[in-house]
């Protein structure tokens, strides 16, 4: 009993010391850094995400629309605002170099359908109503991360969502979306590359797995 109390006291003391040291340390590092400004914002990219993001959120939260017409409308928006070919090669990672034209011809459509379904599910699950751009950071000119917050609808708290857009001027395309620290295309790339790795570098294995999943989605829809 006494020893436990002693241990507790000791831990408390250690924590207090750690906090004190940490605090001092942090103050000393914090001071000069305040001067470092974040990279520049991009008004064009922000405008693009504000308008197109709102289009998507509005569509997905429209009540009384049949699932198939919603999917159709969503597909049309994706075709317009996302750089699907670029995403398609990105998710293949190192295998984008070795994929044959014939394989690419089979991969592209099955990935397009897969991507469509994933984005629709992910964004639809947010149940938000409005999107508000909160800022942006340009990695370099033409490669911008736009930060937004989705709120309203079924969301009890506003949900931060970041969009990576490539382009310039008034012409932009979405290539990736991030929620809670996780980028979708990066996750897909690591997922797909691992699947191909696990099959000794056979890209066909990934293609047939995606085709299988598509068949299961179809079956699930018609049931």
């Amino acid at each position: 009993m006494t020893s436990r109390r002693f241990t507790r006291l000791l831990t408390q003391a250690a924590l207090a010391i750690a906090l004190a040291i940490g605090g001092t340390l942090a103050v000393s590092v914090a001071a000069p850094s305040a001067a470092i400004a974040q990279s520049s914002r991009d008004a064009g990219a922000e405008q693009f995400v504000q308008v197109q993001g709102q289009r998507i959120i509005t569509l997905l939260s429209t009540p009384g629309m049949s699932p198939s017409s919603k999917t159709q409308a969503f597909k049309a928006i994706v075709d317009q605002i996302a750089d699907v070919p670029r995403i398609t090669s990105f998710v293949l990672g190192k295998y984008a170099r070795s994929i044959t034209p014939a394989q690419m011809q089979r991969f592209a459509p099955v990935f397009r359908a897969y991507e469509q379904s994933v984005y629709e599910t992910q964004l639809g699950n947010f149940h938000g109503k409005t999107i508000q751009v909160t800022g942006s950071v340009a990695r370099r000119p033409g490669d911008v991360v736009v930060n937004t917050v989705i709120s309203g609808g079924g969301l009890s708290q506003p949900l931060p969502l970041a969009w990576r857009v490539l382009g310039g001027g008034a012409s932009w395309k979405v290539v990736d979306v991030q929620a809670s620290g996780v980028w979708l295309a990066i996750t897909q790339q690591q997922d797909f590359v691992s699947t191909i790795d696990n099959h000794g570098g056979d890209i066909d294995a990934l293609i047939s797995q995606l085709q299988q999943q598509a068949r299961r989605r179809e079956a699930g829809r018609s049931n």
Binding site: P85, A96, N147, R164
Partner: peptide, 27 residues
């Protein structure tokens, strides 16, 4: 986001093509 950590998206595939045919390392 630490934008510097993000991987590059590579060059845009040839315009007009429905499928990309990348020649360079992407991602």
């Amino acid at each position: 986001n630490d934008v510097d950590q993000l991987p590059d998206f590579g060059p845009s595939p040839t315009p007009g093509q429905t499928q990309p045919a990348p020649q360079k390392p992407i991602g």
